[in-house]
Design a protein around this nucleic acid. Structure first.
Lengths: 194, 194
DNA sequence: CTACATTGTTGTCCATGACAACATTCACGA
DNA sequence: TCGTGAATGTTGTCATGGACAACAATGTAG
């Protein structure tokens, strides 16, 4: 028999929200529906998320955390050399970004409320990984020296853009791998030490 | 005194929707609100847009048309040479993409309904411009020969990604120009004929 | 064990999208 | 010219959902 207090409603709601987001998109996500799934009353979610947007923000934040973890794992598995590591992150990023369209939108689309420092902070982690990688390339003399941040942003943006085009059906998914390869290739050639 | 028939309600609604989109975002856009602004009854919009999504799709489609026009104008104004033309389109695209965040999301974010051929077709026009430009670069021996489509997509994606990052407050707007420059620069170096 | 903070619940309000049934106007052909 | 069907608007209604308030049950700390 269900206790009056759910116990870990917040976690349950987030998990259900993640599923709903993936299946039906952010627009269709309904707090009341989540409450029903969790077996609580329609107003219960309010105790954990002041409003709908707060829940969406939390989802986005969790997304960044997961992204960070996946990129980290990919990098670790790729060994020490720069080139394989570069390919590994880009592939990992595209997999992440392509697998859960709605989540990606939530993460990058400007729907964050004003006080979105938490989100920006969460996003900084993956960025840091990219930046560190670029620095490695520069230190090893493979990439030209320069503003690693800027180069990292361009690389990140390219991946992000590719994912967006594929997710939006503007580019056929079959082309994804080839395009990614071209992009990384161009990045290497474009930033290689001269 | 207002006639029973509005006369050009569809156009009026689209214009109002564009304003609302820019000011408050797609989520806040309400058909009933638009109807009020237009001075018609709450169900009138239905005659022109079967549902909310149809209106959003129409907005996105119009966005692509405007994008195409602006890119075209920028190209025309840039003269004949490849390099200036390349800089012109990228600058024009970033201006467009940065100036109306919500519209950009609508255009690229996967919110299109299933039967979105119209949208994909509308999106093809700007793509074509890019592709033609790349071909020009190849023909003039500035860019390496190869799959122009693929290179165009990568370039487009990079711009799109940069715009997304800026729009999402993940990158400070002041950095935009510098990053764009870096991106174009890298593209040139990365695709230059060897 | 008591007082207060947490966490759920019930009840309500209001906005909105979708739909149906009906009204008015328009346009075109006999 | 007229009248008839297609366009286009209107009123009325329903269901859903977010926000909020008042209240109830449980946990916790002194």
């Amino acid at each position: 028999m269900p206790a009056y207090h759910h116990g870990n409603l917040r976690t349950t709601l987030l998990a259900a929200a993640e599923r709903s987001l993936r299946r039906h998109g952010a627009d269709q996500l309904s707090l009341r529906e989540l409450a029903r799934e969790a077996g609580v009353s329609h107003a219960a979610p309010r105790r954990h998320f002041p409003d709908r947007q707060a829940l969406l923000d939390a989802l986005a934040e969790a997304g960044f955390a997961r992204l960070d973890a996946e990129l980290r794992a990919a990098l670790d598995a790729a060994g020490e050399e720069f080139a394989p590591r570069l390919h590994a992150v880009t592939a990992a990023y595209l997999r992440f970004a392509t697998e859960d369209t709605a989540l990606l939108e939530l993460m990058f689309t400007g729907k964050h409320r004003d006080g979105a420092e938490r989100l920006v902070a969460a996003a900084a982690a993956p960025f840091g990984l990219l930046d560190a990688l670029i620095r490695q390339g520069q230190a090893e003399g493979i990439l030209e020296p320069g503003d690693s941040q800027r180069a990292g942003i361009v690389l990140f943006a390219t991946m992000q853009g590719i994912a967006t085009l594929v997710n939006g059906n503007l580019v056929a998914p079959e082309l994804l791998d080839g395009i990614a390869e071209t992009a990384v290739d161009q990045f290497m050639r474009g930033s290689r030490r001269r």
